Simulated scan of single mutants.
Amino acid sequence: MSTVIDVAKEANVAPMTVSRVVNSPEKVKPETREKVFAAMKKLHYKPNTAAKNLVTKRTGVIDIYIPAAIDLSNPFTMHFIAGISKTLSERMYSFLILRDMKAQHPCDGYIATGLLRDETLEFAHYALNDEKPLVIFGHAQIDDVDCIDVDNVQGSYMAVKRLIEAGHKHIAMVNVAEDKDYPIDRLNGYKKALLEAGLPFREDLVKYSVNSPSGGEYAALELFSGDNSLSAVFCATDTIAIGLIRQLERMGKKVPLNISVVGFDGLGHHLLSTPRITTVQQPIYEIGRMLATALLERIEGRTQRIEKLVPPVLLEEESVAERK
């Protein structure tokens, strides 16, 4: 069985450096860290995490809170967990997916997503009262709570601007009917693009639905039963866009020939539609890694608060046509 000394010789570093890589990798230069990880992998060296946790009085477990209403099999959740898992596994941490906010068991910290607006402060109090750090996928002004989010305002602005640049002047929006920050942010981005282009914002052109294909189908019926001047729709999620396009086809309206559609998420759903949906991609896997890194830094003693917005990317597909 390989030892710390074996790894140190293989990586051409001091044994103390190997120990630092195992216990506090953020304190080691990236190039040195990679050399040590490569040596550990080559020699099949596995740190004694139980002994480490006994010394540091840590459990080696992170709780990931994902509300029961969010399907664990959807692309968002899978990308989110995969990113977190990648970073935690590199640091020899395990994780537990928490579906009940009030469930209690030993852990070293929390990562939370999908919180309703009134739940964010409640969860923060719960975590901080337990003297455990918390990082949130979202944004909130709470002391000692790190927040990392997609720039939803910029993303929806990009989506609507794409439609405007294609010549569309009558653009509706289908938003998510949830009391969370991201639907508000995506509505604000929609408004921002209209205002910049000198187009009026109309409340009657904003519909709210559940985040599902059936919600998109219902929104299509609401939007296109009366106002025939509409030529484009921005959907706050790709899931809604899939249902909207499906219903438009049933109503004899072709996408993008008659109606252009842009979605939001870019996690694979947009490729399952016919036509494939032009969308705004949020880098959920990368954000999962960032959240895990931020939490581990908190556990290691960082005190400075992090609040970060990650820029999304517009993915051009087949659901937008130029308006003549």
Rank of each mutant, 00 (worst) to 15 (best):
E34N: 05
T237S: 09
V206Q: 04
G60W: 08
Y110R: 10
L314Q: 03
T49D: 08
R33E: 07
L309H: 12
D146T: 06
E203I: 00
M92E: 15
I164L: 05
E165Y: 12
A159S: 13
M251T: 05
R117S: 14
S19P: 05
L121Q: 13
D108G: 11
V320T: 12
N175K: 10
Y208H: 13
N74L: 11
D130M: 15
V206N: 04
I164A: 02
D108C: 12
L187P: 01
K9S: 07
A292H: 03
K57N: 15
Y218N: 13
V18E: 02
Y285I: 07
F95Y: 15
H125E: 14
F37L: 12
S19K: 10
E317M: 12
K46E: 14
A193Q: 10
M158Q: 14
M290V: 03
D130E: 15
G155V: 00
Y45Q: 12
A140G: 01
Y65T: 04
L314V: 05
A51P: 05
R246H: 13
P311L: 03
D71E: 15
S319M: 11
H125C: 09
K42G: 05
S229Q: 13
V28I: 12
K57T: 09
V206L: 04
P183K: 06
G243S: 10
L128A: 11
I277A: 02
G83H: 05
P213D: 01
C235M: 01
A236V: 01
K35E: 11
E318F: 03
A14D: 12
S156Y: 02
E297C: 06
D204F: 06
L54T: 14
I164P: 01
K207E: 04
K254N: 13
C235G: 01
Q104I: 01
K86T: 14
L223W: 08
S85P: 09
N152A: 06
P47Q: 13
V13G: 07
P30E: 13
G198P: 03
A193T: 08
K161L: 07
L296A: 02
K254T: 10
E122I: 15
G266Q: 00
Y93L: 08
Q104W: 00
S229P: 02
G109Q: 04
T59I: 00
V18I: 09
L205Q: 02
G252L: 13
L43D: 06
Y190E: 09
G189W: 04
D6K: 04
R58S: 15
V320W: 10
D6C: 03
A50D: 10
F76N: 00
K254Y: 09
T279K: 07
L314H: 02
